[in-house]
Design a protein around this nucleic acid. Structure first.
Lengths: 223, 223
DNA sequence: TGCGGATGCCGATCTTGACGTCCATGGGGT
DNA sequence: ACCCCATGGACGTCAAGATCGGCATCCGCA
C-alpha cells in the first residue's frame, strides 16, 4: 500500500548539474568529504533524516554508495557531523552578537537578527536543529538542546548580571526569549520568507526585537 | 551493528498490568478502540513514531496485531488520530483561556498556563505536537503547524482588536508569544518538571507571563 | 611508446527489521 | 454438544542501510 513519504518530490533536483566532480572523477579526500557533506545537507534539509536515503545522498554527490561509506561509518555519523556544525554555528553567532555591544537593547536586536539570518540562510541548516526528526536519538537530542541551552546561558548571564533575578529565573526568561526568536523566525520564513510583498527580514526581526526588549527591559536593575 | 534507538527503555513498562481487558478478552468495539488509542499514545510518546513498532502497541494493549489493524488501517492513521486529538485539545484550551476574561493581562496568564499545563500533563501528548519525528509527512506537518497557527490567530485577533498594528504584524507578535510559551514550557519540564526543589509550574508560568505581558502591553492602544 | 600491475570506484547483492496479512484454535450461543 | 467466528502465532514482502567481484584508469618501466 502506498505509504510512501514522497513529500518534497516535485522540486527541481540538482541532478542535472551534480555540483563539481561528477561521476567517476578522482578527487582529493578532503575536498570530496566537503562535497559529500554539502550534498548530504541538501538531502537531509529537503527530506528529513528518515526519508533521506543514502542512495539519494550518493547520487546527489555524483558518487556511488561505497565511497560514501568510505568517508562516514554510517548514516547517523553523517547526520551528526552536519548537525554539530549547524549547532556550533548559531551558538557562535549568538555569542558574537551579545559581545558586540554593551547596550542591552542593541544586544537583543543583534541576537534576534542571528536567529532570523540563520533561518533565512539558503542552505537551510537550521532545519537540522529546529526541525529534526531524529530527536529520539540521544546524541541528536543533545545537539538540538545544546543550541537552546547554550544560547540561553549566554543571555541569562547578561540578565543575571544586570538584574537581581535568581540564576534559575534568569535562565527561564532567557529560554523564553530564545523560543520567541526561533519560533517566530521559522514562521516568518514560511509566511514571508520568499515573498517580497510580505514582511521583510529586517522588519520582522525588529518587530520581535521590540517585543522582547519591552518585555525584558522592565526588570529591576541591580545597583 | 547496534544502531538501536533504545532510548527510554529503562522505564517501568506497564506490561505487568495491561490496563483492563487483557489477552483474549472480548470487549465492545468502542471501548477497545479507546484502549488501543491510549496504549498507542503511551508508546508513541515514549519512543517516537519511527522507533515505535505496531507490535509494541498491540502488546501494551494486550491484543494481537490483527486486532489493531481491524481498528486502524495503518500506523500512520493511528498516529494521526492521536495527533489530531492532541492538537484540538490545546487549541480549544487556548481559545477558552482567551475568552475566559476581558482583561488582557489575565488573558496572557491564562494562555501561558494552558501551555504549561499541556506540557506537564502526565500522558505527554504534547510530545506528538512539539516533538514529532514525522514532520516530513505533510499531514503531520499540517497538524503540528495548525497548533501554532491557530493559537496565534486567536491571540492576534485580540492584539489587532486592541491596537493599531496591521494584521500581519499582530500575527507575528502572536506567534512570538506562542513560541515563548511552548519552548519555555518544554525546557521548564526538562529542568524542573519532576523536581520539587526547582521552579514550580505556577511560578514558571507566572514568570514567563510577566515577560510576555511587559512585552505586549506597551503597544499603542487604538481609540 | 607499449605494456603490466595496482588502485580505487561502480553495479549488484545481502541482510535486517518492521509493516501488514493468513491457517489453526478456543470460547460462546443455541 | 455442535457450529461459528473472533483471535493470535506465524508468515510474506519490501524498503533501505551496509557490503563484495568486475573494470576502468593511471603510473612506472623497458
Amino acid at each position: 500500500m502506498g505509504r510512501v513519504l514522497d513529500v518534497t518530490a516535485g522540486q527541481p533536483r540538482a541532478d542535472a548539474a551534480p555540483e563539481v566532480g561528477g561521476r567517476g572523477v578522482r578527487m582529493p579526500r578532503r575536498e570530496r568529504r566537503e562535497q559529500l557533506l554539502e550534498s548530504a545537507l541538501g538531502v537531509f534539509v529537503a527530506q528529513g533524516y528518515h526519508a533521506a536515503a543514502m542512495d539519494d545522498i550518493a547520487e546527489r554527490a555524483g558518487v556511488s554508495k561505497p565511497v560514501l561509506y568510505q568517508h562516514f561509518p554510517g548514516k547517523l555519523d553523517l547526520y551528526l557531523a552536519l548537525l554539530e556544525v549547524a549547532a556550533d554555528d548559531v551558538i557562535a553567532n549568538c555569542r558574537d552578537a551579545l559581545s558586540s555591544t554593551q547596550d542591552n537593547r542593541t544586544r537583543v536586536e543583534a541576537a534576534m537578527g542571528v536567529f532570523y539570518s540563520y533561518v533565512a540562510d539558503a542552505a537551510g541548516a537550521f532545519r537540522l536543529v529546529f526541525e529534526s526528526d531524529l530527536t529520539s536519538e540521544p546524541a541528536v537530542r543533545a545537539q538540538v538542546d545544546r543550541v537552546t541551552s547554550e544560547c540561553a546561558d549566554l543571555i541569562a548571564a547578561v540578565i543575571a548580571n544586570d538584574t537581581d533575578l535568581p540564576q534559575a529565573e534568569a535562565r527561564l526568561l532567557a529560554v523564553s526569549l530564545v523560543g520567541m526568536a526561533q519560533v517566530s523566525a521559522r514562521f516568518w520564513l514560511v509566511e514571508h520568507g520568499d515573498d517580497e510583498s510580505g514582511i521583510g527580514l529586517e522588519v520582522a526581526s525588529a518587530l520581535v526585537s521590540g517585543l522582547a526588549w519591552r518585555g525584558i527591559r522592565g526588570y529591576p536593575m541591580h545597583d
